[in-house]
Every structure is written in structure tokens, then in C-alpha cells.
């Protein structure tokens, strides 16, 4: 977090004079379960993108079509809604067949 400013250095009235400053704020540290993207199983239906409450799904437009490109873990809070709404990731499918697998954060080093 940036150093706190004094009263002469900030806009008056409690106004935040720039948009989207929250993008600096890392919400990914809240995550205890991590969605892992398995592109080979993805049909790019965009349901994960539509429902991600934290806009943590990376999209690339290729030939005019949106393609899932994994997660922005800086923001992902690990709610798992993406996996829940994913038509290729229901509980009945074996993990290796799913497009999104939820794994404990403790499995990862980074």
C-alpha cells in the first residue's frame, strides 16, 4: 500500500478523482482455493467470464471470438463460481476432463 498522504496532498471532499483505483488493490490474497484452468477441455463458452464476481478471467479476442486465457490471480478470490457454472466442469466429470479444477491454495508455491 502506498504511503499515506497528508491533508494538503489529497483532493477535497473525500472525492476520489481518478477512476478504477481499486485495481491496485490485490484481492487475490483472500483466496484459499484456486481455480486451475485446463484449456484442453475448455469450449470457450464464456460462462466463467460472465459470472466471475471479481473479473479475474483473462480473455483474448482471436478472430473476433473471445477465448479464455486463464486467471488473473491478483484478483481471484477463489469463490469457485467459475467452476460451478462451467458446463465442462461438473462434479461427475473426472478432474482431468474438466476445464476448471478447484485446488487448495496450499498446493501452490507462488
Amino acid at each position: 500500500m502506498a504511503e499515506l498522504k497528508n491533508w494538503k496532498e489529497i483532493p477535497i471532499g473525500g472525492i476520489i478523482d481518478k477512476p478504477a483505483t481499486a485495481k491496485e488493490y490485490q484481492t487475490g490474497t483472500w483466496r484459499v482455493i484456486r481455480p486451475v484452468y485446463q484449456p484442453e477441455n475448455c469450449i470457450n463458452c464464456m460462462m466463467c467470464w460472465l459470472y466471475c464476481p471479481d473479473q479475474a478471467i483473462k480473455i483474448e479476442v482471436v478472430d473476433g471470438k473471445p477465448k479464455m486465457r486463464g486467471y488473473n490471480y491478483y484478483y481471484c478470490k477463489g469463490c469457485g463460481l467459475c467452476a460451478n457454472v462451467c458446463p465442462k466442469s461438473n462434479d461427475k466429470l473426472p478432474e482431468e476432463k474438466r476445464a476448471i479444477v478447484m485446488k487448495p491454495e496450499t498446493d501452490f508455491q507462488d
Binding site: K23, Q55, G78
Partner: peptide
């Protein structure tokens, strides 16, 4: 949905990342 995803692939739809609503909250959607 595909059109919207294309349109908002690289821009925020008004509300942006970095908000502190609970994980899985419906309100930001």
C-alpha cells in the same frame, strides 16, 4: 454473452476489479 465478452475482453464494465465484496457475491454481477 459472446458479444459482450468480446466487447469487454480488455475493459471494465463500469465496476472493476479490486472491490472487496465477499467471494462469490452476486451483487457485483
Amino acid at each position: 454473452i459472446m458479444q459482450l465478452a468480446t466487447m469487454f475482453a480488455d475493459k471494465n464494465p463500469g465496476i472493476t476489479q479490486g472491490h472487496r465484496l465477499c467471494p462469490g457475491c452476486a451483487a457485483p454481477n
